[in-house]
Amino acid sequence: MNNQEKLFQAFASALNIELNQVSPELTYNTIAEWDSTAHMILIAEIEGVFDVMLDTDDIIDMSSVAKAQEILTRYEVQF
């Protein structure tokens, strides 16, 4: 599994949605499943999968799948 697949799987798992619902355009609060509680679970999931510790600004900025990928790149995760 490459890192993009891992990221999509992390979203599907944390938000409890089907993998085919995850796309780069998926955005916070645009589906019922991605609310603030799910966002906290998502952060924990992403940190576990990629072995990173996100800072608060990145947690705030992580408002879409595409943005998550962009942020993780700064933590030396390669896509």
Binding site: S36, M40, I43, D55, T56, D57, I59, I60
Partner: peptide, 12 residues
């Protein structure tokens, strides 16, 4: 608690 922890982490 969890929400506060996430929003209180180190900042750039």
């Amino acid at each position: 608690g969890t929400l506060k922890n996430l929003l209180s982490r180190q900042r750039k």
